[in-house]
Simulated scan of single mutants.
Amino acid sequence: MSKLLQEPDAPKDIIMPKDFPGKRNLVKALLNIREPKLTDPILSEEIDCLLQSELIEKQIVDVEKLETIASIFPKNPYIQSEKLVLWQGDITRLNADAIVNAANSQMLGCFQPLHACIDNAIHSAAGPQLRDDCEKIMSIQGELEETGTAKITRAYNLPAHFVLHTVGPIVPQGTGLTSKQRDELAACYTSCLDLASQLEHINSIAFCAISTGVFGFPKTEAAYIAVNTVNQWLAENPNSFEKIIFNVFSTEDYNEYSRVFSV
């Protein structure tokens, strides 16, 4: 922690917590607000050790052992259900070849300290190298990421090998859902699948519930779009991927997907 506090752009007059949870949250918050930049090798090694030890504590989930939709919902209408999985839990525990991050158009992660969004969770578990990779991509691109597109980076301290970053549509509170927003959400899933299919080592992908958090996309319709888009893509590309996981965090989200598979 002392190395983070000694960096030139670190906040001043920080009150040091006395307990370990407080100190750990401070480290996380400092990394959340830290701009992408070259990290001191010793600091980088210390952060990696911390994140790897925490990964061991929270335990890696083997996606190969997860039950498929065909098994849990045997009467589902989806022809690709042998490849589909619905799993509730922390996406940063999944050892899928790639996991999907719901990013914003800056594509650098969430800079709000300790914010409870999927973008923050993934960056916090992966480590600062992930933001550095994203910054390199965005620097070369020279403009904000468009809604419905995707980029791929390494996953660093995550059990996955890659992270697919996609920008979902924003649905302002109190507004109706438009056909454009529906198409943009479907494009997020298609773009991730198209991009991942170009890497022969990616056989499994875990999707978060894109745009259903602070971006405000209605959860019922988002689940329907997610499942139908992925099912159609797999049907059109039968030799691509062995397992696609729909990852949800809350019971409410799990129930939304369950209703889709129970139609």
Rank of each mutant, 00 (worst) to 15 (best):
Q141D: 13
Q141V: 13
Q141L: 15
Q141Y: 15
G142W: 01
E143I: 01
E143H: 12
L144N: 09
E145R: 12
E145W: 02
E146M: 07
E146C: 07
E146L: 15
E146V: 04
T147Y: 11
G148R: 04
T149E: 12
T149D: 14
I152H: 06
T153K: 10
R154M: 04
A155G: 03
A155M: 08
A155I: 07
N157C: 15
L158E: 11
A160P: 03
H161S: 15
F162E: 02
F162G: 03
F162M: 07
V163I: 14
H165N: 15
T166N: 01
T166Q: 09
V167S: 04
V167N: 00
G168S: 10
G168C: 09
I170L: 14
V171W: 01
V171H: 08
V171N: 09
G174M: 11
G174D: 14
T175P: 12
T175C: 10
T175I: 11
L177S: 10
L177Y: 03
T178F: 03
T178H: 12
T178V: 11
S179C: 00
S179A: 15
S179T: 12
Q181V: 01
E184S: 08
E184Y: 11
E184M: 06
A187R: 15
C188D: 02
C188K: 03
Y189F: 15
Y189C: 14
Y189S: 09
T190L: 13
C192R: 12
C192P: 11
C192M: 07
L193D: 06
L193E: 11
L193K: 04
D194H: 07
L195K: 05
A196V: 02
L199G: 06
L199S: 08
H201N: 13
N203P: 07
S204A: 04
S204H: 13
I205G: 10
I205C: 07
A206L: 06
A206F: 12
C208A: 01
C208W: 02
A209I: 00
A209W: 00
A209K: 00
A209C: 15
I210S: 01
S211M: 01
S211A: 06
S211P: 00
S211G: 05
T212H: 00
G213R: 00
V214G: 01
V214W: 03
G216K: 09
F217A: 08
P218E: 12
P218H: 10
K219C: 04
T220S: 15
T220F: 13
E221V: 05
A222S: 15
A223G: 08
Y224I: 13
Y224H: 12
I225V: 14
I225H: 02
A226V: 08
A226H: 02
A226S: 13
V227T: 03
N228F: 06
N228S: 15
V230G: 06
N231K: 09
N231V: 05
N231E: 13
Q232M: 10
W233P: 11
W233A: 04
L234M: 12
L234G: 04
L234D: 11
A235I: 09
A235W: 00
A235P: 01
E236W: 00
E236S: 14
N237M: 14
N237V: 06
E242H: 08
E242L: 13
E242P: 02
K243V: 09
K243L: 04
I244D: 10
I245E: 05
I245K: 13
F246H: 03
N247I: 05
N247H: 05
N247A: 00
V248Y: 07
V248H: 01
F249R: 00
F249V: 05
